[in-house]
């Protein structure tokens, strides 16, 4: 098991991603724990308020190409949608607060590469995140 983790770490050790959550629910905690467990070498930039996320995106991304957005409410989603023009080169994993059709359709306006819900299995999100980080790092020939 140890060997597997180390190999895994070797693949992704120089990758970074952005994690936004202003929710205080259990999903946030579970997700962070599982990401830490699955990717012990990752660089996770965490933003807990919309303003801090917004300010970060106005600075050079410096290699950040994947973001996990754990949306707390419809209002939060509407706020994030205002950042569309600065999220154009980010690959998003979007975690929505509910399963309402309106919320889902609004979520798709952000063009997420993976969309799921707050009551999802966090392992699933972590696996998708791993794949995305591996893929987008391998794809960069520079």
């Amino acid at each position: 098991m140890l060997v597997i983790i180390l190999l895994f770490k070797g693949v992704i050790e120089d990758m970074a991603f952005l994690f936004y959550t202003n929710s205080s629910g259990k999903t946030k905690k579970q997700l962070q724990e599982i990401i830490h467990a699955r990717m012990p070498g990752e660089e996770m930039e965490v933003y807990r308020t919309f303003d801090s996320l917004s300010n970060r995106l106005l600075r050079p991304l410096e290699g950040l190409s994947v973001a996990v957005l754990l949306v707390s409410s419809m209002e939060d989603l509407s706020n994030i949608l205002t950042l569309c023009n600065v999220l154009w080169d980010m690959r998003l994993i979007l975690i929505l607060p509910d399963r309402n059709h309106e919320t889902i359709m609004k979520g798709h306006q952000l063009r997420p590469r993976f969309l799921t819900h707050a009551d999802c299995n966090p392992t699933e999100v972590a696996e998708v995140l791993c794949n995305m980080l591996k893929k987008y790092t391998q794809m960069r020939p520079f």
């Binding site: 063009r111 696996e127 998708v128 794949n131 893929k135």
Partner: peptide
């Protein structure tokens, strides 16, 4: 969007 490469 379905990112076929990212989905396990």
């Amino acid at each position: 969007i379905v990112d076929c490469a990212a989905l396990p």
